[in-house]
Design a protein around this nucleic acid. Structure first.
Lengths: 177, 177
DNA sequence: GGAGGCATGTAACCGGTTACATGATTTA
DNA sequence: TAAATCATGTAACCGGTTACATGCCTCC
């Protein structure tokens, strides 16, 4: 067991520890939950989750017990007290990263290089994509009942951000045509 | 000289080629320009730029000539015709990636784990950050004169997005207090 | 003379995705 | 019985950041 170095908590580790602070879960379940909730602003893949769970257990921030379903092996992870302290420590840090990677915006940036109708096509596609994503998020919200909690607030952020974007690109589309 | 494989144009390569489509530049200048324009939705570091320029030259998408300033070595890169075709090809693709990594949102997601005043503090910090970033972008806009071009439109997007965020977090702040 | 900007580059590291591999169980 | 879902994991690869290293030139 190594010293838990809180300053080096990787992004994926933060998501995992946060989710485990609510309840114990398997790696598979963690993936499920992130796909339905944090995916759009903080995703996680199996290739990260399973090795990370090992590292976290190694560091003493989580522990696990085997809970097979029939003959299907299954390992449930729980937050330790040290893990809980690590989560609290991270939540108390006063620095939050923010990053966007938007290829549509990059293409718009270089929009002067293409004929107007191609640019208009791009803008229209983006508008549609934002509308569809907003609808997708609304659908997730309809299945949820915990919209009053902070996790619900984040979903609302997602919906409203997508709607804002849909409106912005629709506006640009109109001005270009 | 290798075959230029357009389908494998890395994100950084796209930014570089796009900028070179406007005018020839050194690696240093490319960094300058991205820092003032695409940085907030598509950044680039020296550690990427210089090796990428080499690879692009190897692939025949750019070429370069030495243009030292006094005894300071300096290499100016230009887009070749194959490079221009690669840019046009990329711009014509109908698929654009979109990604957000927002640690503030992640903390809000787990907001139920912390005392209300700590959550309020986080929300306030985020609101301030968006306000400041909006102001920063507006400052960049004031120095620019090409606000009618598509690159100017992208800056406007940045400003308005930051303003929308500032308003959203301010609203949440008010409801929490 | 010193600070800051111009200019180029590399090495180590890191976080993440994708594809692959395996097998049990449940559902249509 | 076939497909989908549950469940775990690894290896190869990739794109990117950070820190480091070097040296000239200009302006205060």
């Amino acid at each position: 067991m190594h010293l838990p170095d809180m300053s080096s908590l990787s992004p994926t580790a933060r998501v995992i520890l946060g989710l485990l602070a609510w309840q114990s879960r398997t790696g598979y379940e963690i993936k499920q939950v992130t796909d339905r909730s944090t995916r759009f602003f903080w995703g996680a893949s199996y290739g990260q989750i399973y090795p990370e769970l090992r590292r976290l257990e190694d560091a003493g921030l989580v522990d696990s017990r085997e809970e097979p379903r029939g003959r299907v092996p299954r390992r449930v992870y729980s937050l330790t007290e040290a893990g809980r302290r690590a989560v609290d420590g991270w939540l108390a840090e006063v620095d939050e990263s923010y990053e966007i990677r938007d290829e549509g915006l990059l293409k718009l940036f270089f929009g002067d290089l293409v004929p107007p109708e191609q640019l208009l096509d791009l803008v229209g596609r983006r508008r549609v994509w934002y509308q569809e994503t907003a609808a997708l998020f609304r659908g997730i919200g309809d299945e949820l009942d915990e919209l009053d909690e902070t996790s619900g607030t984040v979903l609302r952020y997602g919906i409203e951000l997508m709607e804002w974007n849909a409106a912005w690109w629709a506006d640009l589309e109109q001005r270009l045509s």
